[in-house]
């Protein structure tokens, strides 16, 4: 699919897919879906399952919304999207309950709260309602994976600092004194702020370097022009 993309065409399926992974990452760039991001990321496993569940709901709802986009009247579109999303969340809720009861208890009401995740409704409204099913689904899967990635990044840090483990495997031996506050609510805010701070510093560095390069090139060009004259 990606090889045959012509220049200046609408974004190819591959681009649709990669967009949400990093460039427009739903959590770190768009700051959407904060409730589950902060609430369930006390461990990497919880984060991963929440991410996968959200990805499924996102992809399935975006596919259906996109397939039905010509049939849904404009006036009731939000209500329709919500009903579609709620249906898939109910499916996910029952599926997780059937697969692992431990996980179901750990995530609790936050699985059903995927309905109120702004990310899902936002993508349905902003992307799926205007694009054909394939593009919409690929974009949704990309966004979902980006969401999962950021959740695991936050959950991983919180688990390592707060429990001294990663995916349940103990890392530092029995003498490790866990930094308990990291698995408590304030830790969520702090780890999220830490990641955002890191990205903002890296972005500013890159910008400054680009500006410096630009200036150096401009200086070289003017001096070259002087020599030419």
């Amino acid at each position: 699919m990606s090889e045959s993309s012509p220049l200046l065409a609408p974004p190819s399926t591959w681009e649709e897919f990669t967009e949400g992974l990093w460039k427009r990452n739903p959590v770190f760039v768009m700051v959407l879906g904060m409730c589950p991001t902060l609430a369930v990321t006390v461990s990497a496993v919880n984060s991963l399952s929440m991410g996968v569940a959200t990805t499924f709901v996102l992809a399935a709802s975006c596919f259906l919304v996109s397939a039905l986009r010509k049939l849904i009247p404009k006036e009731v579109r939000i209500a329709t999207y919500i009903v579609i999303i709620a249906t898939f969340v109910t499916v996910t809720d029952y599926a997780i309950q059937a697969i692992s009861l431990d996980l179901y208890e750990a995530l609790g009401a936050y699985i059903q709260l995927i309905v109120a995740n702004c990310l899902v409704l936002g993508r349905a409204e902003a992307h799926a309602a205007r694009n054909p099913p394939l593009a919409a689904t690929m974009n949704a899967i990309g966004m979902g994976l980006g969401f999962t990635l950021s959740l695991v990044m936050i959950g991983g840090v919180r688990e390592i600092l707060g429990a001294g483990a990663f995916f349940g495997f103990s890392l530092f031996g029995p003498n490790f004194q866990p930094w308990v506050v990291m698995v408590l609510p304030p830790g969520g805010f702090f780890v999220m702020a830490g990641w955002l701070l890191l990205f903002s510093i890296v972005r500013r560095r890159a910008q400054m370097r680009a500006q410096e390069n630009e200036r150096a090139r401009a200086a070289a060009e003017t001096s070259g022009a002087c020599h030419g004259a």
């Binding site: 700051v31 506050v181 408590l184 609510p185 304030p186 830790g187 969520g188 805010f189 702090f190 999220m192 702020a193 955002l196 701070l197 903002s200 510093i201 500013r204």
Partner: peptide, 22 residues
């Protein structure tokens, strides 16, 4: 500092508030 402005600052403030509520 410029890097901290915006969402980062709000999250840090929220974290401190949350710490207080603990």
């Amino acid at each position: 500092p410029e890097s901290v402005q915006g969402t980062v600052l709000v999250l840090m403030l929220a974290g401190v508030l949350s710490l207080a509520f603990m």
